[in-house]
Design a protein around this nucleic acid. Structure first.
Length: 223
DNA sequence: GCGACAG
DNA sequence: ATCTTGTCGC
């Protein structure tokens, strides 16, 4: 069985047509989620973590990790086909569904406007925001290394996201709307989830849980 | 043709 | 993403 990228591109274009970039979620956020995906056994196992935090105090309410056999290779521009199955498995276990979900990776800042945040948002019919550590496409002006600076991420003349200096002297974050969230709100909510670290709290916790980092170990000791 | 390329 | 210790800078 081989992968037909031309076919998948058509699928992405069709799905991208269904993405909505107007705010369609309750402005009163009580729970906010974060996702992260990692791999084990040389990539044979995909590990997805989803965490739900209370807002605005950011305490961990619930989290789940799902491990599935990896069925798709990593191909730039087709990341979601590799990662969404495990994310869906983790999502099914979440009881307290969040009001908003921050996804690791791009939203519409994608060649065909369907990064994993947008794709997952459609599959879950959830408001999502893409939070990526690297750029996939688009161009932007160099910005000062001081936290708080922002510049548009552009593809030709179209704004596909934002480049945000989330912390001093760190590499910037690439923020873009996923689904049911406007570009303006995407940036706004990521900023509201920043607590002195490069990554917004939901993403930071999902990353810690997925990789069993010290932040997560401390949480386990408290229980 | 050449380089870029989320996780 | 992942393999991995110390180390430079804020």
């Amino acid at each position: 069985m081989s992968i037909n990228l031309q076919q998948l591109k058509q699928t992405q274009l069709s799905l991208a047509n269904q993405v909505r970039l107007s705010d369609d979620f309750n402005e009163l956020i009580n729970f906010i989620g974060g996702t992260d995906v990692g791999f084990e056994d040389g990539g044979n196992i995909t590990r997805a973590a989803i965490v739900v935090l209370s807002y605005p105090n950011f305490s961990v309410v619930e989290y789940h990790v799902a491990r599935l056999k990896t069925e798709f290779p990593y191909i730039p521009g087709f990341l979601s086909f590799r990662e969404y199955p495990a994310l869906l498995a983790a999502w099914q276990q979440i009881k307290q569904k969040p009001d908003l979900l921050l996804v690791d990776g791009q939203g519409i800042a994608h060649p065909r406007r369907l990064g994993i945040a947008s794709h997952l948002g459609l599959l879950l019919d959830m408001p999502t925001i893409g939070v990526a550590k690297k750029r996939l496409c688009g161009q932007y002006e160099t910005l000062p290394k001081q936290a708080g600076n922002v510049t548009p991420l552009l593809d030709k003349k179209e704004q596909i996201g934002w480049v945000l200096q989330s912390k001093n002297n760190c590499n910037p974050l690439f923020i873009s709307a996923g689904h049911r969230v406007s570009q303006t709100s995407a940036l706004k909510w990521v900023n509201l989830c920043l607590r002195g670290y490069r990554l917004p709290e939901p993403t930071r916790w999902a990353d810690a849980i997925a990789s069993n980092k010290s932040l997560f170990k401390k949480l386990l000791n408290e229980k």
